[in-house]
Design a protein around this nucleic acid. Sequence first.
DNA 1: CGAGTACATTCTTCCAACAA
DNA 2: TTGTTGGAAGAATGTACTCG
Length: 184
Amino acid sequence: MNEPDFNLLLALDALLSEASVAGAARRLGLSASAMSRTLTRLRTTTGDPLLVRAGRRMVLTPHAQAIQQRANSATMEARSVLTPAVSALTLPGLERTFTLRTNEGFIETFGPRLMSAVAAVAPGVCLCFVPKAEKDAAPLREGRVDLEIGVLSGMGPEIRLQALFRDHFMGWCGKGIRCCRPRR
DNA sequence: CGAGTACATTCTTCCAACAA
DNA sequence: TTGTTGGAAGAATGTACTCG
């Protein structure tokens, strides 16, 4: 029985996530030609074109869309398996940068207290706050972000969610001011 | 407004180089 | 010898611009 080349799994995940040979090549640090050849091998292995031309861009085939989530999960699982074993987590000795994706309001309100609390128990840990340029969960799935804080919805079953607090918004309006619907 | 053209972008294929 | 990679060239397509 012919075993599939499991090195192709990483390339498959990158290709399906980027929906672009050039994009996948940039992500994996390969040339576009090398990634094109890898895509050819993936097509042979899976028996499906996976990515097909749609004008100047490439789009996922129905089969590619069907396996995209599984490919991503398998890649994450493989990364987890190959991560060096950690016997016991010791916060004081932990040296790592965690990337948090949140809005400015959260940083202003909780940022200083959060950093103080982290510094007290894990002085080697650095917190990196990044803006929420887009609302989808792609940065979390791709490992570019460790934690996202905000109003989250439609994240998918693979994203672990936990409610932190509930907030209320209040507005004031003068007597003579009419409220209008925003125009498009 | 539609046709033609130049240019940019992206992907594929060929071929040579390199490592195991 | 085999498999992988990258450079170069070509193909396919979109975009922007000009012209009648």
